[in-house]
Design a protein around this nucleic acid. Structure first.
Lengths: 145, 145
DNA sequence: TTCTTAGTGGAAAGAAGTGGAATAAAGTGG
DNA sequence: CCACTTTATTCCACTTCTTTCCACTAAGAA
């Protein structure tokens, strides 16, 4: 399970330095291959290949639907298979770099099974715009939060 | 399985440069022959010959129907058998080039068993017009996305 | 302070992409 | 039916970009 925010950087060549703690986890649980994509074009999502394949399988079994088609259209448009090098860096596709403004300082967030890579300022703004409400929390139905 | 987006170009002669990664996959799994066609005239679909034959076989076994007739009418109207040259380029039929506006920058999307070739700007516009919403994702019912 | 690990920049080698010339094929008119 | 014109295809050679790897710097632990 990936959790928390690990600030890092994207260099001029568009390479993301995977924070050491996440890298260690990834090396031990998965191979060096990832599927990097986006559902909204505003931030990147980094899936270990196995996790992404699991999602593809689940989708393949689901009946055809507009939502499914859209999902594939979007994720395959932004998506690309990427490999992490020995230095723990991986190249973010240009399209994603541009649309999600991934350059310089970025936040890498652990989202349990995958990672989110976001422009820090943009992410803050989005949180401010669309805050978590008491109603949202109630809807979760989980005790102890 | 083909996945992700590999931007490439169609040159003035109407030749599509197959992105190297897809080319490698195709060379290893299939021959240099493809069936290029379209279901809507808005973007091209590129099937390795074997995959297209599989579809034809499945159709042949299906009973006659309006849907089947339409499918054959459209795919055979736009369709053509094409070969990839040693440089990884293949000639897109003129009709398809015109209708789907395939010139200059195009996106080649991996769609598991086949590839989609779309005008980049057009595809983006389509995504913007019809974005993937939280409700869509919820509707998929897949965990871990 | 010294050792180890994390992060960064960049040069060199190799691969990918591109244009266009040469060759072949198809089409057209006499 | 032949010769000529035009179009299409193949292949070579150049350029550009990408990837890989090496080496340095910085930061933190012993």
């Amino acid at each position: 399970m990936f959790r928390g925010n690990h600030p890092t950087r994207v260099d001029e060549k568009g390479r993301l330095k995977v924070p050491a703690e996440f890298k260690r986890r990834l090396d031990e649980l998965y191979g060096p291959q990832f599927f990097i994509t986006s559902k909204d074009g505003k931030r990147a999502e980094l899936y270990p290949m196995k996790e992404w394949e699991r999602i593809e399988d689940a989708l393949a079994k689901a009946p055809s639907s507009g939502a499914k088609k859209k999902f594939l259209d979007v994720t395959n448009y932004y998506g690309q298979v990427v490999e992490m090098d020995a230095q723990g860096r991986l190249l973010i596709p240009q399209l994603l770099r541009e649309d999600a403004t991934l350059a310089g300082d970025v936040a890498v967030l652990g989202m349990q099974t995958y990672l989110v890579v976001a422009n820090d300022a943009k992410h803050r703004a989005q949180l401010a715009e669309n805050p978590l409400t008491d109603a949202d929390i109630d809807a979760l139905g989980v005790v102890g939060i």
